[in-house]
Design a binder for these strands. Structure first.
Length: 223
DNA sequence: ATATCGATTATCT
DNA sequence: GATAATCGATATG
């Protein structure tokens, strides 16, 4: 049995994509809060083994660097977090809980730490490959969020690992992982506290497209 | 419906 | 030796 895309007679606007242009490095050379907000509605592009996986960014978190106790860069530069202190627009990938990888992009000018964590994307293209990478079967549209809703899930779906992908340039369409802009306009942006942290847990540094069903966490049900 | 828990390892104290 | 920017499974109301 193989996974199969189901027909999409009425494609939503968020799932359409025309020409995709990479974001310039200056986009990332800013405060992670502004980068995070600006990244909503952009697309994450993964090229691997001739396949192109695309997801629209619907949930991110800002990590501020040396002033932010929740940031990996809070205690200073180490081998692990070096990318966060380097130039903007590069992939910082870490391994967590003995199980999962998580993807960030470095922000701020070189020398100042900061990053944005990718928490969820809406699958746009390469759904069969994502399902295979996740080891799950998509039987209905209800199953789609299991592919990429959550930082560990999206890395598994896009086959992103630290040994292979840490430090890769995310501003070039020639990179295996990059971020692009396709004309889509984000709407309904909301801010909430970040997920899964114990320090600075109340700061509203999580940015989501409100109402988008691919945002991680419990799906709100109407009464 | 929510709550709790085990997996499994890089990194830092 | 303890912890962690998570996930999926299981238990319980």
């Amino acid at each position: 049995m193989r996974n199969q895309s189901f027909p999409t007679p009425n494609v939503k606007s968020s799932q359409k994509t025309g020409a995709i242009h990479p974001l310039p490095r200056t986009f990332f050379a800013r405060d992670p809060r502004r980068v995070a907000r600006s990244l909503l509605g952009k697309v994450l592009v993964r090229t691997l083994d001739g396949a192109r996986l695309i997801g629209r960014i619907v949930e991110v978190e800002a990590y501020l660097g040396q002033d932010d106790p929740a940031s990996h860069s809070f205690a200073g530069k180490t081998l692990r977090n070096a990318v966060l202190f380097g130039p903007p627009g590069y992939a910082y990938i870490y391994f967590i809980y003995g199980n999962h990888y998580c993807l960030n992009v470095s922000c701020e000018p070189e020398g100042k730490a900061g990053g944005v964590l990718f928490r969820a994307v809406e699958p746009i293209s390469g759904i069969d490959e994502m399902a295979q990478a996740r080891g799950i079967e998509i039987r209905s549209p209800k199953d789609l969020p299991k592919l990429t809703s959550g930082p560990g899930r999206l890395c598994e779906a896009f086959r992103i690992t630290r040994p292979r992908d840490n430090g890769c340039d995310m501003t070039s369409a020639d990179s295996p992982i990059w971020i692009g802009e396709d004309g889509y306009r984000a709407r309904g942006i909301q801010m909430t506290p970040r997920i899964g942290i114990t320090k600075a847990a109340d700061d509203p540094l999580r940015y989501i497209l409100g109402g988008n069903r691919f945002v991680s966490g419990k799906t709100p049900r109407s009464s």
